[in-house]
Design a protein around this nucleic acid. Structure first.
Lengths: 174, 174
DNA sequence: CCAATTTTGGACCAATTGGTCCGGATCTCA
DNA sequence: TGAGATCCGGACCAATTGGTCCAAAATTGG
């Protein structure tokens, strides 16, 4: 299953053939269809697993840091992942390739975006209880982090990404 | 040519067949190959044209506003394009689909990102001549705008995008 | 009006795609 | 050991892909 996710992540959905998929998963074509029913359902399964793992990791990261402002910064950096290599963010890849004509993927992505934004908004609220603009800042932070994943995929060196992410603090402090 | 760009933009590179391409351009298969040589070169031509048009438009937008801070804000909003529909940013689409394994597209995209970032950095510098962090803020602004294009493609309503972009001011003021 | 050059439509090609199906190998449990 | 269920390899299918090629049509120049 992780092998399928890795392939979809690295190559995209359409560019990953059944041949590669079954080879990487170590199962036969027959088993693949017995298990998932279609290539598309396998993608949904992989994406679903990715979302759960990802959110759990971000939650743990946020919980490990007492100061909510520092936690928010850590979450943003975990999403942007300056050292994350050239594959970009898996969900971002799904959005650009599939979201416009694939309602199931779109729903999955929107749910995950909402959950991540809510996590950030919660941290910002805890950091400055009085401010009413924490939702907006959380959305901006998410946008900044997603933009960074795409700059990373475009080849921006990790060092410059790290410097760029420094500016996230301007969106974190009220 | 514009028709080819529109197709690549809406559907992506691999998902656009020669059939659709020639039909939309109103030329025959033979003429297409006589003119471009390959599907890939047609993509490069369309992308090149897009880059020139795009940068010219952003430049004009920046030039039309006397206050450099307001100009920067306008440029960011033009990139993010809250009302831009569900096709996302063409260059962002190219990055996610092709950049990792297509050096020519990668070079084209990086050049355009650098030029756009330079435009923003120039505005920020003019806005606050003393500040040495204007390059970082320009990069963050670009990242924010690119992230917004992907949220837009994911279905975030224009209203929320506009509110989110409000926060760009925090990156614009020194 | 005709000859030469350009352009066009579309047949054609080999390769690849996601998906189906079945005979035989492998495994389970007693 | 043997019967029953499970899994597997791989042949097979129709559709589609980017790309080539050529005869016929259109355009051009004189």
């Amino acid at each position: 299953m992780g092998a399928a996710l890795a392939l979809f992540w690295r190559q995209g959905y359409e560019q990953t053939s059944l041949e590669e998929l079954t080879a990487a998963m170590g199962i036969s074509r027959s088993s693949f269809y017995a298990c998932f029913g279609s290539k598309h359902e396998a993608l949904l399964a992989a994406a679903g697993r990715y979302c759960e793992d990802n959110l759990r990791a971000l939650d743990a990261l946020a919980g490990a840091e007492a100061d909510p402002a520092l936690a928010a910064r850590a979450v943003v950096e975990a999403i942007a992942a300056p050292e994350g290599g050239r594959h970009g963010c898996f969900l971002a890849n799904c959005v650009t390739e599939l979201a416009p004509h694939d309602p199931e993927i779109e729903a999955l992505v929107r749910r995950q975006l909402a959950r991540t934004e809510a996590l950030l908004a919660g941290l910002l609220r805890r950091s400055a209880p009085g401010d009413s603009r924490s939702e907006d800042r959380a959305a901006a932070l998410l946008s900044l982090a997603l933009g960074a994943t795409m700059l990373r995929k475009a080849g921006t060196p990790p060092e410059r990404l790290r410097v760029l992410l420094t500016q996230a603090d301007r969106l974190i402090s009220p």
